[in-house]
Write a protein that binds this DNA or RNA. Structure first.
Length: 422
RNA sequence: GGAGAGUUGGCAGAGUGGUCGAUUGCACUAGUCUUGAAAACUAGCGUGCCGCAAGGUACCGAGAGUUCGAAUCUCUCACUCUCCGCCA
């Protein structure tokens, strides 16, 4: 959620920045400022009236104490009208606050100045790439390899749950688990503290990181208990710090966590989503940072480098993209996507998304920093996949198969305890 | 799932209708004292909103209600603890 004070101070910049998302925010921004004006006025009037009511009440108390009952009774009668009026004002103020919050929550984050104004993934900018994306028209896609080598059973998953819920088996399961362990260990080396958060969250948490109300239909909802299955570890891990004031000297705060992720992916079908490319349940290791505003963009770069080092150790060719305004998530100010080249499909697969949300999530969550001299300000939040498992697994299988056996990348062998799948 | 007891500021813990946003202790910050530290003493020390400020206003788990007036009374919900039941 954008801050009203920022919108007021930089009204035109905000509108211009949102144009990169192809949103004309002029009307909404004016509405927000108008509602905020109304809110301030209503708050002022209410406070004044409450003060008056309070004064009368304490006077009555004094009269009662002194036994002046008649005076007290006549004063009581006079206050009833004031009381009624205050109730109306209170309702009015609450309504304005709800309207204002809804209007604000409906505005996406303002893109960073480096973000281009494109419309779709076509307009994303490739920042750099590593490794060679070999032509391999004869290479095999992972869904065939998974079957040949008995690593993943997609049909079995269909029986148990439905499409998009694969069953990993034997060395496939071990490889998956090894990747998770490798990612966690690398994160710990980079200074992240591991957490294992809940996999179901309440609506407040969903709102805090911005999944609600924007992406309501994309999450599984356990209606009976009004809990949502997490679409990413970002939600529970970032919400650890909801309604928290952190001491400046405790920053940056760096957490890493492995969680399964659940996404409804309503309406997806076709070869783009075949095999492991898009699932309803998948595993991911997520890194989250809370940062001082002036340090958040430096932190973002370091996070991207961390993800790159994982891909390099896995020897997977990749490229780093800076997303354009039209392709960027609702809550993000700047997002880098990392894509690996999957030889068997001849495609780039998105395996990580690293974002700086600036104060957008912090404002929703009321996550603040308190400096030594008592000054309070909103923190910046950042997160990134480090990494998302299924597509990494797909790329590892496709890129390391020589037609005979699949070689395990050296960095994983200490975890898998086998160096090839034959 | 059943029965009972609770939920107050960073922590502990008073407060059962009228200057209570809240006694006190600990922790924390600054100062005095000290060669330094400790101790002692002094002062400060929650959050939101309105306001240039002075100040005002709201918040005692959440929401609603009774009352001129609620931390205190009533109702609903959430959570915690104890006992019983069930269970990896």
């Amino acid at each position: 959620m954008l801050e009203v004070s920022q919108i007021r101070a930089n009204r035109q910049q905000a509108i211009d920045a949102l144009k990169k998302r192809h949103i004309d925010a002029e009307q909404t921004v004016n509405d927000v400022i108008g509602l905020d004006d109304k809110r301030k006025h209503a708050q002022f009037t209410l406070d004044q009236n409450l003060g008056e009511a309070k004064k009368v009440a304490s006077e009555i108390g004094q009269m009662m104490k002194e036994g002046r009952h008649e005076e007290a009774n006549s004063a009581k009668e006079k206050t009833s009208e004031l009381k009624k009026y205050n109730q109306e004002l209170d309702q009015e103020l609450k309504q304005i606050e709800v309207d204002l919050k809804n209007a604000l929550a409906g505005i996406p984050n303002t893109p960073h100045e480096s973000v281009a104004a494109g419309r779709s993934s076509e307009d994303n900018e490739t920042i750099r790439s590593w490794g060679k994306a070999e032509d391999a028209s004869h290479a095999t896609p992972h869904w065939d390899l998974a079957k040949t080598y008995n690593l993943i059973d997609f049909e079995l998953g269909v029986k148990i749950s439905g499409a998009g819920f694969p069953v990993y088996m034997g060395k496939g399961a071990k490889l998956q688990r090894s990747l998770i362990q490798f990612f966690l260990d690398q994160g710990e080396k980079a200074g992240y503290t591991e957490v294992i958060p809940p996999h179901l969250v309440n609506a407040e948490s969903g709102f805090g990181t911005g999944q609600l109300p924007d992406k309501d239909g994309q999450m599984y909802h356990a209606v009976e208990d009004d809990l949502y299955l997490i679409p990413t570890g970002e939600v529970p891990i970032t919400n650890i710090y909801r309604d928290i004031i952190v001491a400046d000297e405790d920053l940056p705060i760096k957490n890493i966590g492995y969680t399964p992720c659940f996404r409804r992916e309503a309406g997806s079908y076709g070869k783009e989503v075949r095999g492991l490319n898009r699932l309803h349940q998948f595993d991911k290791v997520e890194i989250v940072q809370l940062s001082r505003p002036e340090e958040s963009y430096a932190a973002l770069e370091v996070m991207v480098k961390h993800v790159e080092s994982l891909l390099q150790q896995l020897e997977l060719p990749y490229r780093v993209l800076r997303l354009c305004g039209g392709d960027m998530g609702f809550t993000s100010a700047l997002t880098y996507d990392l894509e690996v080249y999957a030889k068997g499909q001849g495609r780039w697969l998105e395996v990580s998304s690293v974002s700086n949300f600036e104060t957008y999530q912090a404002n929703r969550m009321k996550l603040r920093i308190k400096s030594k001299d008592g000054e309070k300000r909103l923190a910046h939040t950042l997160n990134g996949s480090a990494l998302a498992l299924p597509r990494i697994l797909a790329a590892v299988l496709e890129n390391n198969c020589d037609g005979n056996e699949i070689k395990i990348p050296a960095c994983l062998v200490p975890y898998t305890k086998f160096d090839s799948i034959a």
